[in-house]
């Protein structure tokens, strides 16, 4: 019993002696697929590693992100979790901006004229419909006054219905003119849109899409896709 007690005491002492110099560390990154390195050794996302106490520098990098370095001080018997957020690199942010602008320009050249025309035409077609309704109304009115004039006997009625007929006829002709004017505008607009869209489309096709390239960091073997000008390429780089 006494022997067992001493043995246990000795084991505890030894364990304490050993445990004093080690700690556990794990690293989380955002995004999760980043390459994490520490003293040239690759760490696995979220997995604990046992380290001696001391000062360490953790480096993390992911495609399109900046390389981030973080200093970690490990004390005795520590259990430490390090979270690293990797911001988008300046180059990538600029690339995204250029890509957005490129897309905006391209789609504007391709569909901008049609979209503008549709807005313009829808407003005009709505007007045409309104003026058509007016024309039909004035036409009916003119027909009514024509009939009343034909059936009238008194001079005052002749004058009144003639005046009313002429007024309705004038309004009808004005409405017809407006319909014709707007119809012509819609037709001209369609023609102009046709031509501008044709050239806009051609011009849009000649524009070169921005490319994004970056040098892979912290990796021995990196496969980077490059997208641009309708082609997709894979660049394989190896750091021996």
């Amino acid at each position: 019993m006494k022997k067992l007690f001493f043995t246990l005491l000795a084991l505890m002492f030894l364990f304490q002696m050993f445990a004093q110099d080690t700690s556990k560390l794990r690293v989380y990154t955002r995004p999760s697929g980043a390459i994490i390195k520490m003293n040239g050794e690759t760490l696995t996302y979220g997995k604990f590693i046992v380290l001696d106490s001391g000062e360490y520098i953790i480096k993390a990098w992911a495609p399109k992100r900046d390389l981030v370095e973080k200093k970690v001080i490990l004390g005795n018997n520590h259990l430490k979790t390090v979270a690293i957020k990797l911001p988008y690199s300046k180059d990538y942010v600029q690339y995204r901006r250029r890509l957005k602008f490129y897309n905006f320009k391209k789609y504007s050249l391709r569909y901008g004229f049609i979209a503008s025309y549709l807005i313009f035409a829808s407003s005009y077609i709505s007007d045409i419909s309104d003026f058509n309704d007016d024309a039909s109304r004035f036409e009916k009115e003119a027909g009514k006054y024509q009939l009343l004039y034909q059936q009238s006997f008194w001079t005052e009625d002749h004058n009144f219905y003639t005046q009313k007929y002429n007024q309705s006829k004038g309004n009808y002709e004005d409405a017809i003119d407006e319909v014709d004017k707007r119809t012509r505008m819609v037709q001209i607009g369609a023609g102009v849109t046709l031509i501008t869209t044709f050239f806009g489309w051609k011009l849009g096709n000649t524009m070169s899409k921005p490319r994004f390239e970056e040098t892979p960091l912290l990796s021995n073997l990196t496969v980077t896709p490059i997208v641009g000008n309708g082609q997709t390429m894979l660049v394989i780089k190896s750091n021996f």
Binding site: I128, N132, A135, E139, A142, Q146, Y149, Q150, S152, F153, T155, H158, T162, Y165, K169, Y172, E173, I176, V179, D180, T183, V186, Q187, A190, G191
Partner: peptide, 25 residues
């Protein structure tokens, strides 16, 4: 096609040339 459709929609003046006639007038 849309252009020719619009052309077909052109409104004609049905009151053109109509004269009012009343025997008593």
């Amino acid at each position: 096609c849309a252009l020719s459709f619009l052309n077909a929609c052109k409104k004609e003046n049905t009151l053109e040339g109509i004269q009012l006639i009343n025997l008593f007038d």
